[in-house]
Nucleic acid binder design. Structure first.
Length: 262
DNA sequence: ATGGTAGGTCTCCTA
C-alpha cells in the first residue's frame, strides 16, 4: 500500500477552505493534516472536502484558536486526542489507518516573543508541551507511526534564513532545539523531510510582515514530517509546496509532503 | 532599533 501525506498550517480552515480544496484538487494527498483551523469542529466545512474524495475527518477544535484536523481519502479511525502539558488546547489528534499505521497531528505552542519562561509564560508552556511529548514517547515507543505538524521550531542552521540572527528568536533558540531533539530521541523518530532533502536551506513558513516574502526569502522550517524507525525506510519523495505561499490570500505556511510505500 | 501583517472575536489576543 502506498499513500502520500501532507501537513499544512492553514491559519483558519473556514477562511481558506477554497485553498484547501485547491490543494486537494491539484496535489491530491491521500491524507491532509491541518493545524490552526481556528474553528469549532462542527463549523469545519467538511461538505466542501467530501466531494473531492476526503470523506473521512478527525478533528479537535476551539472557538478562535488552535485546532487540528485530519482529512483523509483513506478510512481512518480516531486513535486519541491528547492534552499535552494540560493546557486545555486543541493541539493534537491521532488517527489509525486500516493498515495499522498511526498518524499524530500536532500544533505545538508558538511560545510568544520572549525566550524566557520567567518573563513570558507562553514560552514556558511551549517548553512544557515539548517535555510532555517527550515523556509520552518515552512511555510508549512509537511503532508504525507518522508524526506531522507545525512544531513551531526550526532545528537546523539551514532551517532558518540566518542562524546567527535567530539564535535568540523564539523558534530557533538552543533551548527549544534541545527540547525538540529530546522528543525526537524519545521516540527514535526520523526527520523524513531532512533525510530526503539533506542539503541546503529549507523553509515552510514566511512571515506575513515581510514586504516581499519571496524576494527577501527570510523563512523558517517549522512544519515537519517524522516517522518511527520501523517505517522510516518506506518514506520517500518529500517536498515543500512553496508555491502555495504565493496563492491568493495565503496561509503564512506552505504544505509539506511525504509518500510512504508500505 | 523598530515595526511590519493577518485572523478571530463581547476591541485585544495570538501568531
Amino acid at each position: 500500500m502506498s499513500f502520500t501525506i501532507a501537513t499544512w498550517n492553514i491559519n483558519s480552515v473556514r477562511l481558506r477552505a477554497g485553498l484547501v480544496a485547491r490543494l486537494m484538487r491539484e496535489e491530491a494527498p491521500d491524507i491532509l493534516c491541518l493545524q490552526e483551523c481556528k474553528s469549532p469542529v462542527e463549523k469545519i466545512p467538511a461538505e466542501i472536502f467530501a466531494p473531492l474524495g476526503y470523506t473521512h475527518m478527525l478533528a479537535r477544535g476551539e472557538k478562535g484558536y488552535n485546532g487540528v484536523a485530519i482529512l483523509s481519502k483513506l478510512p481512518i479511525t480516531e486513535a486519541g486526542a491528547e492534552d499535552f502539558a494540560g493546557l486545555g488546547h486543541a493541539r493534537h489528534i491521532a488517527g489509525r489507518l486500516e493498515n495499522g499505521v498511526t498518524i499524530h497531528n500536532f500544533y505545538v505552542p508558538a511560545g510568544g516573543d520572549v525566550p524566557d519562561r520567567e518573563a513570558n509564560a507562553k514560552f514556558g508552556q511551549k517548553l512544557d508541551y515539548l517535555a510532555a511529548m517527550r515523556d509520552r514517547f518515552r512511555l510508549e515507543a512509537p511503532a508504525k507511526s507518522i508524526l506531522v505538524g507545525d512544531l513551531n521550531i526550526a532545528p537546523r542552521e539551514d532551517d532558518v534564513w540566518s542562524h546567527q540572527q535567530l539564535l535568540k528568536v523564539v523558534s530557533h533558540t538552543p533551548e527549544e532545539v534541545e527540547r525538540l531533539s529530546e522528543v525526537m530521541e524519545a521516540g527514535d523518530w526520523c526527520d523524513i523531510t531532512r533525510r530526503d532533502i539533506p542539503e541546503g536551506q529549507l523553509y515552510s513558513w514566511w512571515s506575513y510582515r515581510a514586504r516581499d516574502w519571496e524576494a527577501v526569502d527570510r523563512g523558517r522550517r517549522l512544519d515537519h514530517v517524522w516517522a518511527s524507525p520501523d517505517i522510516a525506510s518506506a518514506a520517500h519523495s518529500s517536498r515543500i509546496l512553496r508555491a502555495a505561499r504565493g496563492w491568493e490570500k495565503p496561509s503564512d505556511h506552505a504544505p509539506v509532503f511525504a509518500s510512504f510505500d508500505l
